[in-house]
Design a protein around this nucleic acid. Structure first.
Lengths: 195, 195
DNA sequence: GTCTATAGGCAGATAGAC
DNA sequence: GTCTATCTGCCTATAGAC
């Protein structure tokens, strides 16, 4: 089966996304420029515009890819472990992995810049949080039904608290460059759900 | 007792800080410009540079004033209520008040932009979190000693979890423009500390 | 696909008159 | 203290050659 796109173009597109993703996760969407990405890849700014017409389209593509990868990781987690409690630990571990790379969650940092984002990017950020909430709520509901987890309120509410708790833990841990600070807060979040 | 500075200058300086503070809390530090502030106050950009030589100095002054006001509010809270549990609710209420004004915590949004901040601003952001942690840890220690609160680990660790939990709850609630979402997460954070 | 060249705008900042 | 005028630099984006 032939590739649907010329290989070189696809590779360049992915490399652009890789560099831009790292820059956004560390410096924010307004904190990086086409010039930054171009310089790092050894190409020109004009070439970037061939792959992504504008910064808004690049930003949207970043969120879509990031969200898809995150969902893939959650599916992989579903296949690997069945215990709800272990799934939650795996979920927190995904965040820890991001922070280990000195990065903030892409959608967490974009949430901070939400007011200045173009509407398509705003919608994609909210979609990311919604998808996470759905996955977490399912795990929480399962855990409650088999009595491995215990919590007040609806699974969705509890899921929202986990998401915001982990995002906040990343946000604050990063200035301190202190992974343990994140781990401590994350463990505390999940321990409240144990039976 | 005469004012140490001419009244008009002081007022202008405060009005600059007021406008800039609101802009940073909604759009971020890189999301506003001297032109924005000047236009809103009906003065010129050049006048702003008289009061604050550069954006870095303006930003630092913003954090210092914000932190001082926050600490004042905590002192007022200490004088008004004595029950540790009520103090924590009052603490979360301060965050809720900020969010009600469609704003993010100043230092929370600056934490997201941390990598791009000038060093003096970085130090001031960390100082803000540290001061909050000290206050919270004292309340938590008191609550544990009089058995009105219960938690694992050190008061400082628990304090860090509260700060990051509330910051994250604001961060995520804002794209949804949903105060209830924040309140739900905040209540869940504090309920885990009750006896 | 990638380049050179450039447009057009906005950013932070300064000089100097009043 | 505030103004006008201006500078320099970086930004996103486009035109058109190769």
């Amino acid at each position: 089966m032939p590739a649907t796109h010329p290989r070189q173009q696809v590779d360049t597109r992915q490399r652009i996304l890789d560099v831009a993703e790292r820059l956004v996760q560390s410096r924010g969407f307004k904190g990086f420029s086409y010039a930054d990405v171009a310089a790092e890849l050894g190409i020109t700014k004009a070439s970037l515009h061939y792959h992504f017409p504008g910064k808004a389209e690049l930003g949207e593509a970043l969120i879509v890819r990031y969200g898809a990868r995150f969902m893939d990781a959650l599916e992989e987690l579903d296949g690997r472990v069945s215990d709800p409690r272990a799934k939650l630990e795996g979920y927190a571990g995904l965040y820890a992995g991001v922070l280990r790379g000195k990065r903030m969650c892409l959608c967490g940092i974009l949430a901070a810049e939400y007011e200045t984002l173009p509407p398509p990017m705003r919608a994609a950020v909210v979609r990311f949080f919604d998808e996470n909430e759905v996955w977490l709520a399912r795990v929480l509901a399962q855990g409650r039904s088999d009595a491995t987890l215990s919590f007040d309120g609806s699974p969705s509410e509890a899921a929202q608290a986990i998401i915001s708790g982990l995002e906040g833990a990343m946000l604050v841990a990063r200035p301190y460059d202190d992974l343990a600070r994140f781990q401590s807060a994350a463990a505390r979040l999940l321990s409240g759900l144990s039976t």
